[in-house]
Simulated scan of single mutants.
Amino acid sequence: MATLEGKSLGHVLVTGGSGFLGNHIVALLASRKACSKLSVLDLKQPLKPVSGVDYHMGDFTDYDAILALLQKLKPDAVVHTASPVHNIPSKKVLYTVNVEGSKNLIRASQEAKVKAFVFTSSASVIHDLRSNLIMADETYPLIMGKQQPVYYTATKAMAEQHVLASNRTAAHPKFLTAAIRPSAMFGEGDVQLLPGAIGAYYRGQTKVQLGPNDNLFDFTEITNVAHAHHLCLAALLATREREDGGGAMPLDHEKVDGEAFFITNDCPVYFWDFMRSVWATAGDKTDINKVWWLSTDLGLFIATLMEWIFWILRLGTPKLTRQQVQYSTIARYFNIEKAKTRLGYEPICGMDEGIRRGVKDALYRGVVPGQPMELKGKKWE
């Protein structure tokens, strides 16, 4: 386990550093003065650049370009968060960016003598969207190929597999890698989970739920995910420094390189309790005793019917899909003991505080479908 106190990570490059998670990692590292230099690679500039950070526009699916940039910057470490959003329809884009792009970054990092590489994976890489996950841990196998119903997740699993296989190779024995698997991220800057959830409140859908709400689920506040990346990077670099100094390699029970780590708020909640906390924070006053629920089977039937109608009429994606029904009625929570013992991870932002911050921020930015426009830019007490 690495300590964060007074130890510089050197020069760190964060891919996707203008995005949701990447920006939080950059802001956290900058606030902690954790790096001698901090750089970002992204396709776009951030809305609010972090002071003192060098931003570079670029595409890591172009191997020659990314190699040239890494050889110029000479970072000590790379944190790879960049990825398309999970629901884009193009499988080609997902594979090109998540798999081929990650392979490019690994290869270029090795050639540029990067010491440590942390990859942002997903907790969904072990989930088939049908089976309950109860205290699931890192011993569970990756779900890939035909068994994985979500292509985005399949590409994340393929990329993670390559990243971890690139740890301590014969050609690059000092190149260390690890993967962070966050579950259902939410928080300030959220463009998916919270805006969609709050939108249901403004559509008047808070009196209905799918299933009996007996499924525990792990949601993870974004600051905690950023914190876990910092811990993981610090541990990899500490391992490298110890070995360069002639120290012993880490024992199996303390090893971080070549490993994956689930990250959650360590506080699984019933799925619809989380949603109702979000809605209540936005202003919902629905009486829980007046809520009625659809069975999972009925929900799947309705969703299937809507998907077929929307497909036939070429209307896009309906508001209710089979994947959403499955996601909201299944138990999915994780054992994060490995992250606790090897990384020293503990959540630094609780669930209630994270929901309060995230809902406030989403409405302030005006990214919630159907929200009153007078709430955009409005300061909350």
Rank of each mutant, 00 (worst) to 15 (best):
V97D: 01
N98W: 00
V99G: 00
E100T: 14
G101P: 06
S102E: 04
K103M: 12
N104Y: 03
L105D: 09
R107V: 01
R107C: 09
S109M: 07
V114Q: 11
V114Y: 13
K115T: 13
V118C: 13
T120K: 06
S122H: 00
S122W: 00
A123P: 05
V125R: 03
D128G: 05
L129Q: 12
R130Q: 11
L133P: 05
I134W: 00
A136E: 10
A136H: 00
E138C: 09
P141L: 05
P141A: 08
L142S: 02
I143R: 02
Q147L: 11
Q148M: 01
Q148E: 11
V150L: 14
V150Y: 10
Y151L: 08
Y152C: 06
A154Y: 11
T155Y: 08
K156V: 06
K156T: 07
A159L: 03
A159S: 10
V163T: 05
L164W: 03
L164G: 09
A165I: 03
S166P: 04
S166A: 15
N167Q: 10
A171I: 07
A171Y: 03
H172P: 02
P173K: 00
A178R: 07
R181V: 02
P182C: 10
S183C: 14
G189I: 12
D190R: 00
V191A: 10
Q192N: 14
L193V: 15
L193S: 07
L194M: 14
G196K: 14
R203V: 06
R203D: 14
Q205H: 10
T206E: 08
V208A: 03
P212M: 02
N213D: 11
N213V: 09
